[in-house]
């Protein structure tokens, strides 16, 4: 009885809110012609965001895997250093990391490509989160599997390659996909070092035309076009790796 009442209540609230939002957004008096000249800028910004996302995705997986390996290495110093890295990165704002990375660290080694530095900083940031996801996945493999691999005569490397990682991959997919979607959205903060990505182009278009909604609404579609395929791919892979039936 109370279950039915609760689900009706939730449905009504969600539906009403949704209809209200769509109505407000749809009935706004838009000036699309004001933003039209910035069309190409928005497209190029979207492509830059796509490039940053793809590059950071691969680099952050690599960094995440290294950090996980360091933490699980069984050697105290690397484990400690990786732990400190992960805690510092996760405990401080990305915005600050981007500023320090570009204006202090990259500057000190005379590297002035804001796009390049942006990709690296973003990957270092996302890699810290991924390493925690990876570590959780590996530690969730039951000890009976390790024992069995040992009894068969596998080396440590073989145990990871044939037994642990194939099973861990499926377990970390959903959380990793979430992190990749965050990565795409977090790339919008790179405007502070004037990377001409998607959000930066929308800000510029807005600044020049005062057509705020016309400039920012395309962001919804643009970012969703990037994050939704990640979600679909993750579901697809999860199904492929499902060996329970």
């Amino acid at each position: 009885m109370w279950k039915a009442a609760l689900s009706t209540f939730v449905s009504v609230v969600l539906l009403t809110t949704f209809i209200f939002v769509v109505w407000v957004v749809a009935t706004h008096d838009y000036r699309w012609e004001a933003i039209a000249p910035y069309r190409n800028n928005l497209v190029s910004g979207w492509l830059v965001t796509l490039l940053i996302s793809l590059a950071s995705l691969f680099l952050s997986v690599f960094i995440g895997a290294l950090l996980t390996a360091g933490q699980l290495s069984g050697h105290r110093l690397p484990a400690f250093l990786c732990r400190v890295y992960v805690e510092v990165i996760r405990g401080t704002p990305l915005l600050t990391q981007i500023l320090i990375g570009y204006y202090l660290i990259a500057n000190a080694i005379d590297w002035h490509s804001s796009l390049g530095v942006g990709i690296v900083v973003l990957s270092c940031f996302s890699g810290a989160y991924l390493s925690e996801i990876f570590r959780g996945g590996i530690e969730s493999i039951p000890s009976s599997q390790w024992l069995s691999a040992r009894a068969i005569g596998f080396t440590g490397a073989q145990t990871y390659r044939f037994v642990v990682i194939p099973q861990a991959v499926r377990r970390v997919l959903p959380a990793s996909a979430g992190q990749f979607a965050n990565l795409v959205k977090d790339s919008s903060l790179l405007f502070v070092i004037s990377v001409h990505e998607f959000t930066m182009q929308a800000r510029e278009a807005n600044a020049n035309t005062y057509a705020t909604f016309e400039a920012y609404l395309p962001l919804i579609l643009g970012y969703f076009l990037l994050t939704f395929p990640i979600s679909l791919l993750s579901r697809h892979l999860e199904r492929r790796y499902r060996y329970e039936h």
Binding site: S144, Q145, L147, S148, R150, A151, I152, G153, T155, F162, V163, P166, Q167, R170, Y241, Y243, E244
Partner: peptide, 21 residues
């Protein structure tokens, strides 16, 4: 020890097959 283990065969109470294979 690894060479020793390889020469023998081990079976556990809880089967311990690899579920992904």
């Amino acid at each position: 020890l690894r060479v020793w283990r390889r020469r023998n065969g081990f079976l556990f109470q809880s089967f311990n097959l690899f579920p992904h294979l």
